[in-house]
Design a protein around this nucleic acid. Structure first.
Lengths: 243, 243
DNA sequence: CGGAAGATTGAAGAAACTCAATTTGTGTGG
DNA sequence: CCACACAAATTGAGTTTCTTCAATCTTCCG
């Protein structure tokens, strides 16, 4: 092994990864983390617009986002597309493929990104030996269900304005969890993609951005969006609904 | 142990349960199933309208529906309710609570029901010893994500008519999986509950039932709903969408 | 700097919602 | 077993929200 690849290896182990408190290694001790490390193929690059996996692909490996942003979308029998999530750093992709062994979703990078790949069969083997890893894995699976329920709640009960507000707050919160400035959001997805995710047309999304801007709740500057009045934005989401 | 309880025990083990091909024991051999059996508290009755667990309750046990029907609903900070699922026999409830250890959902029986309770901590212990059970558990967790994505797809892309059609077909398919007549659906939930689940008002649901009836796709008789033209109903779902 | 893609805004239309009246279904007590 | 009362479901009419279609403006790359 060359010096450079050795250094690269050191630099890119779970133990030194800034996302270890969000990702699969959470709660593991040094020895356990090493075992997990041995499984992980790190730093696969996926350039903006490229696919990491497609619907119909067999599940080989789960993928954790290291850097960047993805969208996951599914296509119904009628050809309708629905974005089911925008995974960012530390979040796992492909969990829904375990049930059938085949991906239903399509994962596309929204910006140049890097992922860590975790071969699923080998991971399951390791889980039996490492109860803490097993539990964390279950928490992540369960957390994916919770995330989906939140989206169902948004889709089922909210008006367009509140949907967009909730969307921005969600991205903001996730930035905060990663130690980034929660009031400055760089949106890597288009209005159309936001609309698709929220069950709205792109024009409606655009109008709601304008509406929130007119209320001085947010500010926009190209793809950057600033949250100017977090409190009021939150109050908006908590107040408003259709049903 | 008395004779009666011994008999009851025999009668209500996973190995003789008609749902074992849907539920947690799928794929286990006899010995493995016995170990799982030892964990399960069977036949807890939950009468119509009663809660099995509520949001805020600590997760003690997962629950598999043995007989009957439940609704799971979550309440947002704004007080909005959203039904996230209608679990029926063989389906697990409480998986979303693993991530935090606390239930977010409320489980209410829609008719007199019975559940098998599986203490979660003990189950996780057993998973390490039984790789096949572990895998099946992961499949069920993953399947819950898939189910949620299907709902997201329905909420995000479908019109009222197609939502209701998709809802009826889903219930019908699940009856079929259980060996029951898929064209005769006994709806234990109200129009309001269906509407809440689908992001519609109860009046809209009622109108769509009437519309489907006028097209001779379904027939209704009290709470019973018959699927009269399954093919056309399916074609409807596959054709139609908003976005 | 020019062209294309994305975003914004306006006006008109459609889908679903609200409010209200009526009908049907369900469960209970006489 | 029937009658009554209450809850659920249906249907209609008018309103709101979001969508559709179209024009313009902005941003981003080559």
């Amino acid at each position: 092994m060359s010096v450079t690849s050795f250094e690269a290896n050191l630099k890119h182990r779970c133990s030194s990864c800034s996302l270890r408190e969000i990702c699969l290694p959470l709660g593991l001790d040094a020895e356990e983390m090493t075992k997990l490390d041995d499984l992980v193929k790190r730093r696969r690059r996926v350039f903006s617009g490229q696919s990491l996996f497609r619907a119909g692909d067999p599940l080989q490996a789960l993928a954790a986002v290291r850097t960047g942003f993805f969208k996951i979308y599914e296509v119904s029998v009628s050809g309708q597309e629905q974005i089911t999530g925008f995974p960012m750093s530390g979040e796992l992709m492909g969990l829904d493929a375990i049930s059938t062994g085949t991906h239903r979703g399509n994962a596309v990078a929204l910006e140049d990104s890097e992922v860590c790949e975790i071969p699923f069969t080998r991971l399951e083997g390791l889980l039996s030996d490492l109860p803490r890893l097993q539990h964390q894995f279950h928490k992540l699976l369960s957390g994916a269900i919770t995330t989906d329920h939140t989206l169902v709640m948004i889709l089922g009960t909210m008006t367009a304005e509140f949907k967009v507000a909730a969307f921005l707050l969600n991205l903001s919160d996730r930035r905060g969890q990663r130690g980034e400035d929660p009031s400055e959001i760089l949106l890597p997805m288009s209005r159309e993609e936001i609309g698709n995710y929220l069950g709205l047309k792109l024009e409606t999304v655009s109008r709601m951005f304008s509406k929130l801007r007119d209320q001085n709740l947010i500010e926009t500057e190209g793809r950057k969006t600033f949250i100017r009045n977090r409190k009021a934005l939150k109050a908006l989401c908590q107040q408003g609904s259709v049903t």
